[in-house]
Design a protein around this nucleic acid. Structure first.
Lengths: 245, 245
DNA sequence: CGTTGTTTTGACACTAGTCAATGGGTGTGG
DNA sequence: CCACACCCATTGACTAGTGTCAAAACAACG
């Protein structure tokens, strides 16, 4: 209630990518009533844990998140990363409980979408249901793209594809597609790509040695997008990359 | 019309996994009217191609399919495989066109779900919409599991996970979880897992040398499911595997 | 300023890719 | 029914690429 004063879905820069997309103003206002906005999380804070009952979906308002699972020895397997406008918890609609842990990679905020009331609203507002379907379908397409990355055999191509995927996602947010910060550790990237953290480090230094990118800590600047794309071409799928960039 | 005599959704062994799940008899009969059933495809035949306009979803009735993309040099990247009861084309709801080629790996049949009329029906039958959401969400969860396979660094673990994933999927169909045929070539498996076809071959012979499986051509028999699972434990996620088996 | 966690770098071992040759199965046509 | 061709799978030899381990450099934080 307090937060609704500071931000509304109508104001939100991300609304075109988020649930309100395609709704008219009165419908957005209806939707807005059920949304709990701008919950703040600190670095490392857990948004939800695997097997938690899924009572809400969450949209990334700002910052970024890491999705992962752990075995009983505590070894983690990173499954992916969430950037602003992306909806977290979609896989839980099926089972009713979350399949993965999600933690904040930096100070971040989320909008919470209580499921029970979202379901009601979807029946009232067909275009909301339609947008939810689109988001689910988009999520499926996005993970398929992640599969193309991981299906590659070479570390170099995986690294290039990873950077290009981030570039594309930042671009769709209206940010630069050549300059951005990695909010995750090398280890998380490596774990996600099926590589060691040392390999990530080496691939990044190799790319900057070749003047394709510059790296300063977590700050990435892509000097030559075409070259970066060309790394992937011989071994994988160029036509696919058009949609990445 | 002719086919509706031979098979109905009510008869179908797969209906509990498919779109009719959760619908009452009269609703299933309504759904059935729009479904074109048992279209037959021969080995290698294309069900749909990338960028085709998506006018229908397809459910695998029998056989199996391969999902892949190609670059302009004709090099293929296999993205995954579809077994009976699984719905193909879900990622196309977002863009309205298919993101991948799909071909039959063997003589197979599909049920076709025309989208325009499916959307109408979803508004009429809320539980159909609900089931469609569940299927979309399940698809997301399933691909996430594929990501855990590919996130592994060792070929041995990837191979074991691949076999366990197939085992689980066949089990959910009511088939044996220890004896099944690989309908795809070694090359397709390797391409999917980010390995060479020679590596697939070597991993399979290694597993049979260790008396964990037997291999005769494409016929796989798992001798020791626990051993197969234990291959993955040290490097990845045991708790995750419970759901796979 | 010291502690802690992260990243980089080097040395080495070993896994998996590549290339090439062989073997086996299936299907076609004589 | 056999011979041949084709595709797929297997195996071996070799090499390139990665993982592992360990140490050092670096950054962030209190």
């Amino acid at each position: 209630m307090i937060n609704t004063i500071t931000t509304t879905c109508l104001d939100c820069r991300l609304s075109d990518l988020c649930l309100p997309h395609g709704l008219d103003i009165s419908e957005i206002e209806t939707l807005e009533i059920i949304i709990r906005k701008n919950r703040l999380l600190q670095t490392g804070e857990i948004l939800y844990a695997k097997n938690d009952k899924c009572l809400s979906l969450f949209a990334v308002k700002s910052g970024s998140f890491r999705r992962f699972i752990t075995n009983e020895q505590g070894v983690e397997q990173t499954m992916g990363f969430y950037l602003p406008s992306e909806i977290m918890g979609l896989d839980a609609l099926f089972e009713g409980k979350f399949g993965y842990h999600v933690t904040a990679l930096e100070t971040s905020s989320v909008c919470e979408l209580p499921l029970s009331r979202l379901n009601e609203l979807c029946i009232q507002i067909p275009s909301l249901q339609h947008q939810l379907n689109r988001i689910l379908s988009k999520e499926i397409g996005d993970i398929h793209q992640q599969l193309t990355i991981l299906g590659n055999t070479s570390a170099k191509a995986k690294m290039a594809m990873f950077l290009l995927m981030l570039s594309r996602r930042y671009a769709s947010l209206g940010y630069s597609n050549t300059t951005f910060n990695l909010s995750m550790r090398r280890q998380d990237i490596g774990n996600f790509l099926g590589l060691s953290n040392e390999s990530i480090s080496r691939q990044l230094t190799a790319l900057s040695r070749d003047k394709i990118i510059t790296v300063q800590q977590r700050a990435i600047h892509i000097l030559d997008l075409n070259l970066l794309q060309s790394i992937i071409v011989p071994e994988s799928i160029k036509c696919e990359m058009h949609s990445l960039c």
